[in-house]
Computed example of a mutant assay.
Amino acid sequence: MTDTRDPELPGVLLRTERDALIPLLRDAPESAFALRTACPGWTVRHVLAHCGAALNRLAENRLEQGVFTPESNDRDIAERADWPIGRVVDELERGMTEAGPMIAAAGGVLDRLALGEWVHAGDVREAFGVEGAYAGPGLGYALGLLTDAAERRETPLLIARLDGQKGELTFGVEREGRPAARYAGDGATLIRLYAGRPLVGTRYELEGVRENELIVFA
């Protein structure tokens, strides 16, 4: 691992996303929370319940064995099934505000969770039909965390040239005998690739690697 981690970046990303997402949720009609998302089997309400539970578990340092598994996620969602939407959103807002210091103190092993919560915010916006669902003010911070996540998951080395940006970004690790892959397109689509989200309607160029080799979330 390269020693380039910014321990404050996960908290900055979460707070930035809080300021963008929470007003959208407060203004949404209750029927919108029953919309299906890109996460199989999950509605908007399910995604928000999962995110709120996970972030508050971090903030409160309740990281018992078996957390963040599919079974644990399902239990968290079930426990919140009869909560009013306002309470679900309140818990999420609190978690996005308070989880940063715990993630920072973990030395990098929890950084990917902050990135995952940001991706879930994109899932919600996409379900709502918001343009640029995986973009917005947090995109630059998310790409910063993606650099570390791809290295930790040891995805193939990829050189990305993003629309409208000078220079290139590097993700993943070099593999003997395999040249670096190349990506050209926008940052939001790159996030979709690494998060395993649907790519319908996007435009990008990808050479030297298959899409499923890039996914950083199990």
Rank of each mutant, 00 (worst) to 15 (best):
P29S: 09
P29T: 09
S31E: 15
S31H: 08
S31F: 06
A32F: 07
A32Q: 09
R36G: 12
R36F: 08
T37H: 01
T37L: 01
A38W: 05
A38P: 00
C39H: 08
G41P: 00
W42R: 06
W42V: 06
W42P: 02
V44M: 10
V44L: 05
V47F: 04
L48K: 08
A49H: 01
H50V: 03
H50G: 07
C51V: 02
C51A: 15
C51S: 11
G52S: 05
G52M: 04
A53D: 13
A53Q: 05
A54N: 01
L55F: 12
L55N: 01
N56M: 06
N56C: 06
L58C: 10
L58K: 08
L58V: 10
L58H: 04
N61A: 12
N61E: 13
R62G: 06
R62S: 13
L63E: 09
E64P: 00
E64C: 01
G66D: 14
V67I: 13
V67N: 13
V67P: 06
T69P: 06
T69I: 07
P70V: 10
S72A: 15
S72I: 03
N73E: 11
D76A: 14
I77E: 07
I77T: 01
E79D: 13
E79P: 04
R80N: 05
A81K: 15
W83S: 06
W83R: 14
P84W: 11
I85L: 14
I85M: 15
I85S: 03
I85D: 13
G86D: 15
G86P: 05
G86W: 02
D90N: 04
E91Y: 10
L92K: 01
E93S: 15
E93W: 09
E93P: 08
E93F: 06
E93C: 10
R94C: 02
G95A: 01
M96T: 08
M96A: 08
T97M: 15
E98N: 13
G100H: 03
G100N: 02
P101T: 12
M102A: 14
I103N: 04
I103V: 14
A104H: 00
A104F: 03
A105E: 13
A105T: 07
A105W: 12
G107S: 08
G107P: 00
V109T: 14
V109E: 14
D111E: 11
D111Y: 02
R112I: 13
L115M: 14
G116E: 10
G116Y: 08
E117R: 15
W118K: 06
W118M: 08
V119R: 05
V119E: 09
V119F: 04
A121E: 07
A121K: 02
A121L: 11
A121N: 09
V124T: 03
V124Q: 02
R125C: 02
